[in-house]
Simulated assay, not measured.
Amino acid sequence: MSSPTFTRKQQAERLDIALTASYEMEAISRHLNGNLPMEQPEYQHLRALVVRVLSLNSVVMSVLGGDDGRETEEMRNVVEGCA
């Protein structure tokens, strides 16, 4: 099966959609992080998950947003859980 070929305009649109989705994940994660119920015994676990999503999403945003100043090794460490 061959992979689809996209025009530059289509590829730019796809990247824009992905970056917009990434920004929304960031907003949702930050909202959750600031509004977790403190009295729940699962608080620490839920907070750790939200912080992990934020960290992973920061890598996605860096790549999709063209942040060429961010080191590849640093991003790899985030993804692999070493940062």
Rank of each mutant, 00 (worst) to 15 (best):
56 L>N: 08
25 M>Q: 11
51 V>E: 09
63 V>I: 14
55 S>K: 12
70 R>D: 12
44 Q>A: 15
30 R>H: 05
33 N>C: 10
58 S>F: 00
69 G>A: 14
49 L>P: 01
54 L>K: 00
54 L>P: 02
35 N>M: 04
43 Y>N: 06
38 M>E: 15
45 H>W: 14
60 V>T: 09
67 D>H: 08
35 N>W: 02
59 V>K: 01
57 N>Q: 10
47 R>H: 10
56 L>R: 05
53 V>Y: 08
30 R>W: 03
53 V>F: 11
27 A>S: 14
59 V>S: 03
29 S>L: 08
50 V>S: 04
43 Y>A: 07
65 G>Y: 02
46 L>I: 11
34 G>K: 02
41 P>W: 04
53 V>C: 14
50 V>Y: 00
71 E>Y: 03
59 V>E: 02
72 T>V: 15
43 Y>C: 06
61 M>T: 05
26 E>V: 04
27 A>P: 04
43 Y>W: 06
63 V>E: 13
52 R>K: 08
61 M>F: 01
35 N>D: 09
28 I>P: 00
66 G>S: 07
37 P>W: 05
50 V>K: 00
67 D>C: 07
46 L>C: 13
59 V>G: 05
40 Q>S: 15
28 I>R: 03
72 T>Q: 14
64 L>P: 06
34 G>E: 12
56 L>Y: 06
37 P>E: 13
41 P>D: 14
67 D>T: 01
53 V>S: 13
47 R>N: 14
28 I>T: 01
44 Q>K: 14
46 L>Y: 10
49 L>Q: 13
55 S>E: 15
70 R>P: 13
44 Q>T: 13
61 M>N: 05
46 L>Q: 12
49 L>S: 10
60 V>L: 11
55 S>G: 15
60 V>P: 02
56 L>P: 03
29 S>W: 01
64 L>I: 04
35 N>S: 09
50 V>Q: 00
52 R>V: 01
32 L>W: 09
42 E>W: 01
64 L>F: 06
24 E>K: 07
64 L>R: 03
46 L>K: 11
51 V>D: 09
54 L>N: 03
33 N>P: 01
28 I>W: 00
27 A>Q: 11
48 A>L: 10
37 P>A: 08
65 G>K: 02
28 I>S: 05
57 N>F: 00
37 P>V: 08
46 L>N: 12
29 S>I: 04
68 D>L: 15
